[in-house]
Design a protein around this nucleic acid. Structure first.
Length: 143
DNA sequence: GCCAACGTTGGC
DNA sequence: GCCAACGTTGGC
């Protein structure tokens, strides 16, 4: 069981859109970065990920679950890129902003703060728990 | 809208 | 295989 963080520009794909796809979820397509790809290849069914909005919001807004492991990205004609499928689990009652992450002693070394350009990144259990709490969840979701 | 940081590409 | 140039991302 691993934890991740996936970033999206809400204008192109938002957590609200993700929620509308319900339990069947959607492909996390369009990733064209080797590091992000290798992170997606390491994902297993049932892993959980934060859904982060870039741009205006710059905040973790929800949680998604990996429902299909890495497979061909249907939007890639060259066939070299892959994606996973994710489904919304729940939104955070209170979004956790990038500013808060950077200000928090235990979170400021997160990849999110250090390398904001990596679109799919691992999150430690400790980071996961802290952000869930800051986000207003009584307890982190179960798989 | 600008700029810094990073990743990727291509020439040597 | 190295490195400069370029393009893109994302924060400010």
């Amino acid at each position: 069981m691993a934890y991740w963080l996936m970033k999206s520009e809400p204008d192109s794909w938002s957590f609200d859109q993700q929620k509308k796809t319900g339990r069947k979820g959607a492909e996390w397509d369009g990733v064209r970065n080797f590091q992000a790809r290798s992170n997606m290849k390491a994902m297993r069914r049932g892993d959980l990920a934060f859904f982060y909005h870039t741009g205006e919001e710059k905040a973790v807004v929800g949680i998604v679950k990996v429902i299909a492991e890495a497979h061909q990205d249907s939007t890639d004609p060259t066939g070299q890129w892959q994606c996973v499928d994710v489904a919304a689990v729940e939104g955070l009652p209170r979004p956790v902003t990038l500013a808060e992450v950077k200000a928090h002693a235990k979170l400021k070394d997160m990849k999110l703060a250090r390398n904001p350009r990596l679109s799919v990144q691992p999150v430690t259990l400790q980071e996961w728990a802290i952000i869930c709490k800051l986000g207003g969840l009584a307890k982190p979701p179960e798989t």
